[in-house]
Design a binder for these strands. Structure first.
Lengths: 212, 212, 212, 212
DNA sequence: AATGAATGAGTCTTCATTCAT
DNA sequence: GATGAATGAAGACTCATTCAT
């Protein structure tokens, strides 16, 4: 008897979570496409095949929904980046894998990348700023760790790893956005090679033979 | 007699331009702070110390005003970048100067930099996209030219100069934004050195003695 | 079970239609009194005891509401006229009844008559013109039919029935408007007799005995 | 010396009147085309080739201008009608001439006729109502006189001449409007004949031979 | 819990009117 | 007297949020 009740409750909970997730998915698509302000709750309700009022059972208000979308999105990125950084590969491989992983993620989820660009600031952002900054700090810390590892191994120069990690994200994201606007594939060999090479050696002459 | 008339006319014209400029200035401040959608024409009118209706004598509507602000802003950047690129210095110095100039411009006009982040999307941007893309192409062409010059002189590696130019802007702008959010000075020695070094040599070990 | 659902649905639908109808009624009153341009949606909302925004759930915009009012109004007139024209009476009686019916309708719905005067012009009318012209054509066709019947029976002269039908409406409507402005009763014996007589015989001497 | 001053003054006055007249002319065109509310003072100023502010030197405000236009227009009609009614012709000829004169006037001044239809009522009209009603009364009195003359001469039946006069205007104006909307010529033989015949004999059978 | 109709505050935009030049 | 830039009141329309069913 108890079990049944538990089941029922947990089914309810599961359903609740599933619906929440559907809303988030729909919202993310539309927020990415139109930005926060040009998206209406009607748009989202239609996409999620729900009544507008229902959304308020799962999120406090439009801003809350938007932030939840943002947070989920950046959480995904965080997971992917962390997993790559914690692998057992040498630092250089890790960096290369990071480029690959991120471009691939952006390619599969163009909306995620757009969402990150349309970081609508203003009043809104302020409320959320702390949370988002923490997420970004986590991302930077992960990459920063890989860079420090490389420096310890004498592979990378003694640079400011936080700045370098931030630069890393700027590069990848900027490149992906540019591909997106120009309607090129986001994940492509040329860009991969350019970025890996540029990130390692900058624009200066680089003699392949020096490497070993 | 004629002169007086001419004077009058030109004074009127000057006043007209001045007023337009005042509106643009006020608008730029507020658009930068709040973004397009959270800015109301009332905000701008108050800031410009004008009646709301007056703005419509100078701009067709809110969008037109916003685009004019954007265009003026990016025009400024274009001028500064072009001037630096056309100087008589060696390519490496030019690149260093570009970093300095841009950071300095961003420091003096934080709003400009914020404005550039807010790639306002959706329907709106589309109308303007062509124009804005042209501006960006010009920026990239200028920097690209410097890079090609450096390659011809054997200073830089044979990289894709357009990608590298785009990466350049992503780096500088990203760095400046990050300083801004963390309330650090945008123009500072450490960042300058980091960026110059990173852009030239990436993160790899770089032995100063190899240089010559 | 099904029945309940059906009932609910149909109740909702009925309520929806009822509300729409309330709005139309309120709008018609005010449009008639003030004309399209001097009527504000606030006026209508207040009259209909609804929030302004609610109106937009039933009509696309102010113009749509106005046209809907016009159409409903002329539709009423069309029905009344058609019914009278299709009765089994001799043509002369039909014409007399038409005068009576129309004056009576105008008396009960002064707003309807006023509405018809305000041939709102310009851009606006053009959108609707075709629809309205069709309605007017229908009206004229109905009356025209009665006149043709009368001509076939040798009761009326061989006049252009379309012109005569149009003249009929001009007369009745003009007479009603004039009563309205002069604050006389719209439906009154003298006017009825005058119109019936005038329409049949014009202003010329008419010897009652000639009739038979 | 005095004469010169007088001349100057009267020249000024003449110029003033001329300008006033130009404004009226421009205003009448645009009011007729767009109606009161869709016409802006800018429209009129452009048409009159004057600055907007200048209009306020000649008319108190937009409403005053509109009423002046209306009054001038109906004054023209009044003159034409009066002149025709005071001629030395027999009543039937006078009536025929009235039809001709009015149609011809409407044809030459379509705006006048439109203006009369777009008698925007509402608040506005109320202010003016008395004046306009007087004008209409004058028109009706003139025609009424002709009808009475005809009755005295045994030409017309003993009808209510005021009603018959009003009916006359409704007929002519309605007919002209209908030609206008259907893009037919306003002054044309068929309509003339129809109206003259209809007004005299209504729709009943009329044996031409009875006439004499 | 889901629904979606109702709400009304908030914004852009227009335009009659004023007034300094 | 003419000008036309500035003004700000007024109005249409949108949409996040609430709430009765």
């Amino acid at each position: 008897m108890k079990k049944i009740i538990t089941d029922k409750v947990s089914r309810k909970e599961r359903e609740k979570l599933a619906r929440r997730s559907e809303i988030l998915k729909a919202a993310r698509r539309i927020f990415a496409e139109k930005g926060l302000h040009e998206t209406t709750l009607d748009d989202i309700a239609v996409k999620a095949e729900l009544a507008k009022g229902t959304i308020y059972g799962y999120f406090e208000n439009k801003d809350d929904l938007f932030f939840s979308v943002l947070e989920e999105a950046i959480g995904n990125l965080e997971n992917v980046v962390q997993k790559t950084c914690q692998s057992d590969l040498p630092p250089q491989e890790k960096m290369l894998n990071l480029v690959k992983t991120m471009l691939s993620l952006f390619e599969k989820n163009e909306d995620l990348m757009q969402l990150m660009t349309r970081n609508q600031p203003g009043q809104l952002m302020h409320k959320m700023q702390e949370k988002m900054q923490n997420h970004f700090k986590n991302l930077i810390k992960s990459v920063s760790g890989v860079l420090q590892e490389g420096i310890r191994q004498g592979l990378f120069g003694k640079i400011d790893t936080e700045k370098a990690a931030a630069a890393f994200f700027n590069l990848i994201h900027g490149n992906a956005m540019s591909s997106f606007w120009n309607k090129r594939k986001i994940y492509n060999k040329e860009d991969l090679e350019f970025m890996a090479n540029f990130y390692l050696h900058g624009i200066s002459v680089y003699d392949e033979k020096e490497k070993k």
